[in-house]
Design a protein around this nucleic acid. Structure first.
Lengths: 146, 146
DNA sequence: GTACAACTTAAACCGTACTTTAAGTCAAGT
DNA sequence: ACTTGACTTAAAGTACGGTTTAAGTTGTAC
C-alpha cells in the first residue's frame, strides 16, 4: 500500500506542508519518488514517522532528530550513539515530568485559592487583616503559594 | 528591599532583556519606576514573577498570561474567570503529563532495542521472530531503509 | 486529449519569544 | 563635575517550525 503526501498527512493528522518540510530538512531519507517526482509513502514508512513523532513529543529540535535519522541510515556503527541519544532524551522526559508535577501542585494551590475566593465573593478572604486593593493580590498569592 | 532589572534577572535566572520584554508586553503592570525612569522591583513582586513563571511552564503564551494578569488587576469581579483559566491550565498540564508518559514508554522500548543491539553488535539481532517481538516495527523500519 | 485536482519547487511569509543594536540617560563613586 | 557601568527606548535581528504563495508538473478520469 502506498500513499501520496496528502494521504499520509491525513493519516498522521498533520499538514502536507509539514511532511514536505520534514523531507526538506532531511528527516525522511527513506522516501521514494515516482518517475515524475511525486513522493510515495509506504506502510513501512509509518514506523519512521512514529519514531520521528515520538522524538518531536519530547521537544527534540528537528536538527537533532535529523542526527538520529542519519545515524540510523549509517548502520550498526552508530548503535551506541543512538542508545546514548535515546537515554539522554529519556532523562529529559523524566525531568519534564518532574517539572510538570511541581507546576501542577502550584496550580492546585491556585485552584483552591480562587475556589474559596469565589465562595466568599472576594480575594480578601485570604488576607483578612489587610484592606483590599490591587496590590494586595500579591500578598494573597503569596499566602496561597506557601 | 528593591532591585534593578539586572539584579532581578539574576535572582530569577533570566536575561534582563526578557524582563524588559515581559514589561513591554504588559505582564508586569505592578512595576514601579524611579523618578529617572529606572525600573524598581520589590520583594513583593517575586510572587507575581513566580505566578508568571508557573503559567509559562504550562506552555501558556504571553498574551494569555497577560489576560490573567489584567484580570488580577481588575479585582474581585474576575475571580470566576481566573478560576476557569487555572482549571483549564490544570487540565492542559494533566494532558501533557499523560502524553509524556506514553512518550517515555516508547523511549523505554527503544532503549531496550538499542541495548540488546549493542550487546549483539548489530540491529539485525532483532530481525528474527518478528511476530512476538515488541520492537518489530523498528526492525521493519531499519530493514526497509537498506 | 483535455480537464482538473493534487502534486512539485523555491522563496517569501508568519507567529512566538526573545536578543541585539544604537543612541542616549541615570546614578553612584571619586 | 566627571567617569563609568547599568539603565532607558525603539527598532531590527534571530531561531524555530512551519505555512503560504506562485509558477509549473503529474497523473487520473472522462
Amino acid at each position: 500500500m502506498t500513499y501520496t503526501v496528502g494521504e499520509m498527512a491525513k493519516k498522521l493528522g498533520v499538514a502536507p506542508s509539514a511532511l514536505r518540510y520534514y523531507d526538506k530538512e532531511g528527516l525522511l531519507p527513506f522516501m521514494k519518488r515516482s518517475s515524475g517526482g511525486i513522493r510515495i509513502f509506504q506502510d513501512s514508512d509509518m514506523e519512521w514517522m512514529r519514531m520521528i513523532a515520538c522524538l518531536k513529543k519530547t521537544g527534540m529540535p528537528i536538527k537533532e532528530i535529523k542526527k538520529f535519522v542519519d545515524w540510523c541510515m549509517e548502520g550498526d556503527t552508530t548503535i551506541e550513539k543512538r542508545l546514548e541519544l535515546i537515554d539522554r532524551q529519556r532523562d529529559a522526559v523524566l525531568a519534564q515530568m518532574q517539572q510538570l508535577k511541581e507546576t501542577l501542585a502550584t496550580l492546585n494551590d491556585k485552584h483552591w485559592y480562587y475556589e474559596t475566593a469565589k465562595q466568599a465573593g472576594a480575594c480578601a478572604i485570604h488576607h483578612q487583616n489587610k484592606a483590599h486593593d490591587p496590590q494586595e493580590e500579591i500578598c494573597a498569592m503569596e499566602g496561597a503559594a506557601k
